[in-house]
Design a protein around this nucleic acid. Structure first.
Lengths: 231, 231
DNA sequence: CGTTGTGAAATTCTTCACAGCG
DNA sequence: CGCTGTGAAGAATTTCACAACG
């Protein structure tokens, strides 16, 4: 999807113990399967075939089976997959068994929306801090947190043990804050700022841009709808 | 990045006049070039080489030139590209010369953040309506708009001429609203709801999921940081 | 029997390398 | 000379088709 895909990054490390890496495209889809499986689990579904899980996830069944083959063989031929078991194994492969501590920088509309978004907690991501530069906002409550001054970024990241950062701030200041975050030792960053951030190669940066998504839609819409057909 | 990529979807429409379609991966990157060019334009830069535009966009120069070749030949050999001219041509290729009217469904934290996000207006996307189901919220002001009752979805979409919809609502109701939006004739949808929406093949659906992005980061982080090395 | 897991083919995307042109 | 535009090579991804197996 997204859009745009992840940076390929470090391919070396041919050391014997290294689990074979999963192709980026497959990683992105595994998260989707995981969500579908979680839903099924909640609905009490116990077994699922590649065919129906694929349909629920919006991919072909062969793509699904190929993706799962990167994770391991957790199905039963002639039967399908046990929902709980497969779910657990995908989680493990994605590294979701450990707890991730997320700090949000920027307590504007978007930052607040993210801080209150329930979808994080339930999937193993703990929001441990939220920052803003505006003194009118520092100290306010957002969800269960109090907004910290971005001036205290480094000590608070350290104290809370944050290992991921979400940047929800204006383009103009994003690069400077990003540099500080990296210097503070956080190497996994999700940015909502509409700029291309420059980061060293050992930093994992992902980018979400709402306007970009609309532009991609516009391209497809333009091709689908007749150009002249006025509304 | 990116992230998840677009759904391939509707490839038909082999009608003779159709301009040759641009590969999905290239479309996603063209929006990035456009943003970099806009920044340069604001800074008064007049010409740019494929090398420097590529660096500013985080891609290789050969990828950049190949992408531009899908749009046309707007550079000058030995010199580079005129920023304004290239910018205009990419916009045209992406269908951004016409005005797009966007309706947001869901006036929660995220919906409000999107409605107030300045990045849309400046890039040719007009937010023309925002909806919510909560009667406590209906009628409130959000940015320059007043929140409409989602019960009036169809007539308001019609009246405002919305041709794109952004879904910023809970998973539980997303599919039902999505169906109504499609029935009302809007075939370009951007969803922030953490579910796989089922749509007919002639509908353009893009999906952004914050938790998915964090999960992808987690996978890479897990592979980078030593698994045992406790914080 | 029905469904998984997987080599091999087909397709798409990226990189290379250089001809072409201002 | 320098940089664009592009055919061709190379990689990655998706699809196909079927053997393997509970």
């Amino acid at each position: 999807m997204t859009s745009l895909d992840s940076s390929p990054e470090a391919v070396h490390g041919e050391s014997g113990t290294a689990a074979k890496q999963i192709p980026p495209a497959a990683v992105a889809r595994l998260t989707i399967y995981l969500r579908a499986l979680t839903t099924m689990l909640a609905e009490g579904v116990e077994r699922v075939s590649s065919e129906s899980l694929a349909e629920a996830s919006g991919v072909s069944s062969s793509t699904l089976r190929k993706d799962l083959s990167h994770v391991g063989s957790y199905g039963t031929r002639g039967v399908g997959y046990e929902v709980a078991y497969l779910s657990r194994n995908i989680s493990a492969a994605l590294g979701l068994t450990r707890d991730w501590k997320v700090a949000i920088v920027g307590a504007g509309n978007l930052g607040k929306a993210l801080a209150r978004y329930g979808g994080f907690e339930s999937r193993g991501f703990d929001v441990v801090a939220i920052f803003d530069a505006d003194q009118m906002v520092v100290g306010n409550e957002v969800g269960w947190l109090r907004v910290s001054d971005v001036a205290d970024l480094e000590p608070v990241l350290q104290r809370t043990g944050a290992n991921m950062v979400v940047l929800a701030l204006p383009a103009a200041v994003a690069q400077a804050v990003c540099d500080r975050v990296i210097a503070a030792g956080v190497h996994s960053i999700l940015s909502f700022a509409p700029v291309m951030l420059q980061v060293p190669p050992d930093v994992n940066l992902r980018k979400v841009d709402m306007a970009t998504e609309l532009q991609i839609l516009a391209y497809h819409a333009q091709r689908t709808q007749l150009p002249g057909a006025g509304e």
